[in-house]
Design a protein around this nucleic acid. Structure first.
Length: 281
DNA sequence: AGCGGGACCTGTGGGC
DNA sequence: TGCCCACAGGTCCCGC
């Protein structure tokens, strides 16, 4: 499930395959995959992909109009992979499969042709092509919280207010951008804090421990190319390795790796949550 | 305000 | 073996 480390990995592995490539055609197989605020994808034809980035769980391709074409402004192609979305390049001869939602035909600086596929089994993912200022009309984008790897304890403390469960707050993209179920559970275990604690009840020491844990877990996962539960693959089709390092996620009923207690599995905010009642207070 | 629950989707896997 | 159903995931939207 692509969260911050997985999207970061896709952005990095995709870059060498598409940088400085011209979009020569588009094929949209599932119209609802394109966000309502998006430009029609065919408007990207003739433009050049100049870079890849990540913001929260969003993957961003920077698009520049070709040479000095008039009336064409810098554009961003933003993709939210949700649970099963994949963005990867394939040979120019490759055809859509049953889960392909859209395809971009590319030609590289060496004139070699390829195709960029957006495949998404569960079809929850979306893409949106727009100029930067139009993106601000998208409330999800406009309200996205700070990047956890650039966040200060003061910023986190400011955002962890109220009585809702801490885990619910961590998964709220307006609070912090990029954390989903996996990294919420893993970060809370690493910090030794119970997921049901009221978000506003943390002491300064706990707030600092939580931020340091979030950052350490995210960095460690990025270094291992993310976690692959079932569907996630990077742009080269490779799985990540961080799932082998999970302390709690997906381990309900198994033993805590730190103290041997049977891990509890509960629901918080409708999400499966695993924690150690002894290690997390 | 903030909660729970349903909708969106499809594939998997457990239970019978 | 096969069927059914719960579940998984992130976000939005509705109603309380």
């Amino acid at each position: 499930m692509p969260e911050l480390p997985e999207v970061e990995t896709v952005a990095r592995t995709l870059l060498p395959h598409i940088r400085d490539h011209i979009i020569t055609g588009t094929t949209l197989l599932r119209p609802t995959t394109v966000h309502s605020l998006s430009l029609p994808l065919e408007r990207l034809v003739g433009s050049c992909i100049t870079g890849t980035r990540r913001r929260g769980k969003l993957l961003i391709l920077d698009i520049q109009p070709q040479s000095n074409a008039s009336g064409k402004l810098p554009t961003m192609l933003v993709a939210h992979l949700r649970m099963t979305g994949r963005l990867l390049t394939k040979p120019a001869t490759e055809l859509a499969n049953k889960h392909t939602r859209c395809i971009f035909d590319l030609v590289g600086p060496d004139k070699a042709k390829s195709r960029l596929f957006f495949d998404d089994t569960r079809a929850f993912g979306q893409i949106l092509a727009a100029r930067p200022e139009i993106l601000n009309e998208w409330s999800f984008w406009r309200n996205l919280g700070p990047e956890p790897l650039e966040m200060t304890v003061a910023e986190l403390a400011e955002r962890l207010k109220g009585q809702r469960p801490l885990k619910t707050a961590l998964m709220d993209q307006k609070v912090i951008a990029g954390i989903g179920n996996i990294y919420a559970d893993e970060s809370l275990f690493a910090a030794g804090i119970h997921p049901s604690r009221e978000a506003g009840s943390l002491t300064p020491v706990e707030q600092e421990a939580l931020l340091l844990s979030i950052q350490a877990i995210l960095r460690l996962s990025i270094s291992q190319c993310g976690s692959s539960i079932r569907d996630y693959r990077d742009a080269n089709g490779n799985a990540g390795a961080f799932q082998n390092s999970f302390s709690v996620y997906g381990r309900g009923g198994e033993l805590c790796k730190k103290c041997g207690t049977v891990l509890d599995k509960i629901k918080i905010g409708g999400r499966a949550t695993v924690f150690c009642r002894k290690c997390q207070k």
